[in-house]
Computed example of a mutant assay.
Amino acid sequence: MNLALLMSEDRRLLILRLLAQDPGYQLNVYVLRPALQAMGHTVSHDLVETDLAWLAEQGLVTVGRASDVTVGKLTARGADVAQGLATVPGVKRPEPGE
């Protein structure tokens, strides 16, 4: 199995789950990056923005800007994927009990 692919899929799932935890279902890259690092993904600012753009292409988040900061907002489809109710190739499916 390709480690880089596994890491990307896991990181994308974590982004969706982090967005689902926020009361407004949105977080900026300056919050997402350290949250991902706390979960074992040491990533660049650029990579978080790239993941958000990829998730937006899949219809799982919307991406906007606030004061020149990228903000991701969870969509209903993204919430379904975060909960394991729907699957999208390129996003890890949650393990049972997660």
Results as ranks from 00 to 15, higher is better:
M1Y: 12
L5Q: 15
L6V: 15
L6N: 12
S8T: 11
R12I: 07
L13T: 06
L13A: 03
I15N: 00
L19T: 02
A20M: 05
A20V: 06
A20S: 13
Q21M: 10
D22Y: 09
D22C: 10
D22R: 13
P23K: 14
G24T: 07
N28W: 05
V31N: 01
V31K: 13
L36C: 02
L36I: 08
Q37W: 09
M39V: 11
H41G: 05
L47M: 15
L47F: 13
D51I: 08
D51W: 04
D51Y: 06
L52F: 05
L52I: 12
A53Y: 11
W54H: 14
L55W: 07
V61H: 02
V61S: 00
T62W: 11
G64K: 12
G64M: 09
G64S: 10
R65L: 11
A66G: 08
A66R: 14
S67K: 07
S67R: 06
D68H: 15
T70L: 00
T70N: 04
G72W: 11
L74W: 09
L74M: 07
R77I: 12
D80M: 06
A82V: 07
A82P: 03
A82W: 03
Q83E: 07
A86V: 14
V88G: 04
G90L: 05
V91P: 01
V91A: 06
V91H: 01
V91M: 01
V91R: 00
R93N: 10
P94K: 15
E95S: 15
E95Q: 14
G97Y: 04
G97P: 05
G97S: 13
